[in-house]
Amino acid sequence: MSRAPLRLAVVEVTRRRPHAPRYDAYVQTMVAQVLADAGEGGWAADRLSAGDLGVDDLLRLSDAADAIVVLGGEDIAPEFYGGGSGYVAEGSHDVVADAAQIALVRRAIGRGTPLLGICRGHQIINVALGGTLVQHLDDAHGLHRAADVPADRSMVGHDVAIEPGSGLAAALGVGARVRSAHHQAVGRLGDGLRVVARSSDGTVEAVEHRSAPVTGVQWHPEDRGSDRAQLPALLGRLRAAVASVRAVAHAA
Rank of each mutant, 00 (worst) to 15 (best):
residue 54 G to W: 10
residue 121 G to L: 07
residue 118 I to Y: 12
residue 90 E to D: 06
residue 166 S to W: 07
residue 39 G to R: 15
residue 94 D to R: 00
residue 220 H to T: 14
residue 27 V to Q: 13
residue 144 H to N: 11
residue 189 L to P: 09
residue 204 V to F: 03
residue 73 G to K: 02
residue 128 A to G: 03
residue 154 S to P: 01
residue 66 D to R: 09
residue 146 A to D: 09
residue 161 A to R: 13
residue 246 R to G: 02
residue 45 A to S: 14
residue 170 A to E: 15
residue 68 I to D: 00
residue 75 D to P: 05
residue 158 H to R: 11
residue 10 V to H: 11
residue 31 V to C: 05
residue 208 E to R: 04
residue 3 R to P: 03
residue 42 G to M: 05
residue 105 V to D: 00
residue 82 G to H: 09
residue 41 G to I: 11
residue 30 M to E: 15
residue 24 D to N: 14
residue 190 G to V: 11
residue 83 G to V: 09
residue 79 E to V: 13
residue 6 L to I: 06
residue 117 G to L: 01
residue 11 V to Y: 00
residue 85 S to D: 09
residue 126 N to A: 08
residue 169 A to Q: 08
residue 133 L to S: 07
residue 100 A to L: 00
residue 209 H to L: 07
residue 95 V to L: 08
residue 155 M to P: 00
residue 81 Y to I: 04
residue 157 G to K: 14
residue 50 A to S: 12
residue 117 G to N: 08
residue 80 F to I: 07
residue 223 D to R: 06
residue 77 A to H: 15
residue 73 G to T: 04
residue 196 V to I: 14
residue 250 H to R: 13
residue 70 V to I: 15
residue 213 P to F: 04
residue 6 L to M: 12
residue 124 I to Q: 06
residue 60 R to Q: 11
residue 168 L to A: 07
residue 92 S to K: 11
residue 77 A to G: 08
residue 232 P to H: 09
residue 123 Q to I: 02
residue 152 D to E: 14
residue 47 R to F: 04
residue 226 S to M: 09
residue 2 S to E: 11
residue 241 A to P: 04
residue 31 V to S: 09
residue 219 W to M: 09
residue 109 I to W: 03
residue 143 L to I: 15
residue 110 G to N: 00
residue 228 R to T: 14
residue 119 C to K: 09
residue 123 Q to F: 01
residue 147 A to V: 12
residue 211 S to C: 04
